[in-house]
Design a protein around this nucleic acid. Sequence first.
DNA 1: CAGCGCCCCTGCCCGC
DNA 2: TGCGGGCAGGGGCGCT
Length: 271
Amino acid sequence: MPELPEVETTLNGVKPHLQSQKITLVTVRQARLRWLIPENLAEILQNQKFKGFRRRAKYLIFEFDHGELIIHLGMSGRLSVLPHFVEAQKHDHVDFQLQNGKVLRYTDPRRFGAILWHENKLIAHKLLAHLGPEPLSEEFDLEYLKPLLKKRQLTIKQVIMDAKIVVGVGNIYANEALFLTGIDPRRPANKISAKRVQKLIEMIKNVLHAAIKAGGTTLKDFYGVDGAKGYFVQQLHVYGRAGLPCNTCGKKIKSLMLGQRNTFYCSNCQR
DNA sequence: CAGCGCCCCTGCCCGC
DNA sequence: TGCGGGCAGGGGCGCT
């Protein structure tokens, strides 16, 4: 489900509801996510106040005085803020009840997501320690990316989806950025001119910005915190459009597997 | 180190 | 209408 724009949308959605709120009760109905939710999470968070909010890659990080709550939504995870407690549905695994009566609820049918507690604020969590730069940061530029691509023979699509190179670019936006740049997703990363690498960087930033603006991409089950869908799906040029005509040239969009991920491209517009 | 394949899990869609 | 197979937005891990 969520790539960077969806995670960003989620963070922006929950933040105003949680700012300075105290947690009165944590209920874990299902602790078996990607990793086991810490057994003592309820004790750790009891009576603690949300102090800060940030996103790193696709991780949501909630700051408290004594540590950080790290939440990853995996493929099917979702956070919602309920105005008051309502009975939990099948995949509503965790509730964070707030002093004002609202409930922050974590829902995740496939349970590929994660909820972790990280105490040592001075050292990055193991999962966050070796990540590449944020795609929307200035650090992600030609000077940074060009030499890294030069070392890789893997396809460009797989390389831009590698979190050690750049974070947050998942399958939807990797496909879209390559279409917008006119690069064939199968092209080896080390065989792209500096000029086109520059354009690729710009298109990655553009497509992510545009998707955030649209509230993310709702394919089937991504909803913002308030239950609203993301509308970026209307702007997708290739993702999920195999067999349909290219918006630019009318030729049929093709699909193939690259690194176990479905890949969509126009063989006429992308070389 | 680079690259590949597997795996965690449920839901849904398609073809028979 | 029922069932099996394949696929889904992620990404860590173990192996070559």
